[in-house]
Design a protein around this nucleic acid. Sequence first.
DNA 1: CCCTTATGTTTGTATGTACAACCATTATTA
DNA 2: TAATAATGGTTGTACATACAAACATAAGGG
Lengths: 140, 140
Amino acid sequence: MFERCLYFNLNALTRKVNRIWESEFRQTGLSAPHAYVMRLVLSEPGISQKHLAEELHLDPSTVTRFVDALAERRLVRRDTSHTDRRSAAVFPTAEGKRLQKKLEKIGEGLFQAMQTRLGDKHFQELVSALREARSTLEKS
Amino acid sequence: MFERCLYFNLNALTRKVNRIWESEFRQTGLSAPHAYVMRLVLSEPGISQKHLAEELHLDPSTVTRFVDALAERRLVRRDTSHTDRRSAAVFPTAEGKRLQKKLEKIGEGLFQAMQTRLGDKHFQELVSALREARSTLEKS
DNA sequence: CCCTTATGTTTGTATGTACAACCATTATTA
DNA sequence: TAATAATGGTTGTACATACAAACATAAGGG
C-alpha cells in the first residue's frame, strides 16, 4: 500500500540496515551508534560534543548520552576545554585506541559487503541520493 | 567523515524525514507510525496484526503496542477472528473512519511536497532505490 | 564592570522499536 | 487421540533518540 511512500521505504530499509550494522559491530561490544561516535573521537581526539553532534546529525543531548556510555566503559574521557570551559573535549583512552583497527575494519567490510550485494553502481547512487536529499531538505 | 557510508546517510535522512512527517501528522493527534497503522486498518478493515506487521515491516510486538494505543483512543477495536481464535482482527471505529480523509490528504500532501522539493525524477529514483535495496537485502 | 543574551552541556521525560520469553490456540504426527 | 510442534499475540525489558527546560560559562553593550 505504501510502495511509493518515501517515509515508509526509508524507515523499512533503515531498520533492516541497522540490524546488519548492529550485528557486525556487536563483536566490539558497542552498538552501531556508539561505534560511530567512537570512530569520530578516534579520528579527531579532543573533538567537542557540539562538533560530534553536528557531524553525526544528532541532538546534543543524544551525544551527551553516548559519550556518557563510552566514558563509563573507559573508552573515552571528557576534559573541559581550556579555551572555553563550557565545552567538553572528548579523547579516546588507551583502551579506546585499541579498538580503532577493528572498528575501521568492520566499517570497511560493511562498505564492501553492501557494494557487492547492492551492486557497485546502485550502491553509489543510493548513497548519493540519500546525501543529496538530506542536503536539499536542510535548505528551505 | 562518513559521507560514503550507507548507514550514516540513511539514518541521518530518516531522522530528518521523520521529523517532517511527524509534524504534518500531528494535526490528527497521531504520530506518523500510528497514522500509518491507522491508514492500513482503514484500507483493510478486519486485517490481522500479523498482516499489519508484514505490510509495515514491523515486529509483531510493535504492532501490538501501536494497536493498543489506537484502541485506547477508540480509533480501532480488536475482535478475535472467528476462523482462528489466536488471531486478532482490527477494525476502525466510527471515530476512526472520520479520520480517513484527513490522513489521506496529509499523505498526499507530503508525497507532492517531497516530489516538488526533491525534484520529480530524483524523488522517484530515490524511492525506487530504497525499495530495491530492501528487496535485495531481504533475499540472501 | 554589570546585565542581558548567546552557547555548550546536561537532565527529565517521552516515544519508537526490537528481541526474547511467554501464553493461547491450532495443526501435525506418532 | 495424546503429545508435540507451529503460529499469532502479548509482556518484560532494553536501547536510540528527541525535545524542552535547566545550568554553567562566555560575550557584548550599556
